[in-house]
């Protein structure tokens, strides 16, 4: 029972990330690729062992997304 609970708790961030990201599928001008990469990255971050690691990885996901988006939108 305890193991099962731990398993559920471990999957909770993944589920939350999925709900958060997939629940907001508004079109993004940066293009599909940047957004897809962000979603995949969020999923990987959600699997981190600790909340602090998850947060740090999440920041890196957003920095990568920002880099992708700005090159597509602002690059001249």
């Amino acid at each position: 029972m305890r193991t099962r609970m731990r398993h559920v708790l471990r999957l909770a961030p993944v589920a939350l990330a999925a709900v958060f990201v997939l629940g907001h599928s508004a079109p993004v001008r940066a293009g599909f690729t940047c957004a897809e990469d962000l979603r995949g990255c969020y999923f990987r971050a959600a699997l981190a062992d600790t909340w602090s690691s998850m947060w740090a990885m999440g920041i890196d996901c957003e920095l990568d997304f920002t880099d992708c988006a700005r090159r597509a939108i602002l690059g001249q």
């Binding site: 990201v21 001008r29 962000l38 957003e62 920002t66 988006a69």
Partner: peptide
């Protein structure tokens, strides 16, 4: 914005 990816995109400042 309503989602983080939209927030990141719409706040690209130059």
């Amino acid at each position: 914005e309503s989602s983080r990816e939209l927030e990141l995109t719409r706040n690209l400042a130059t």
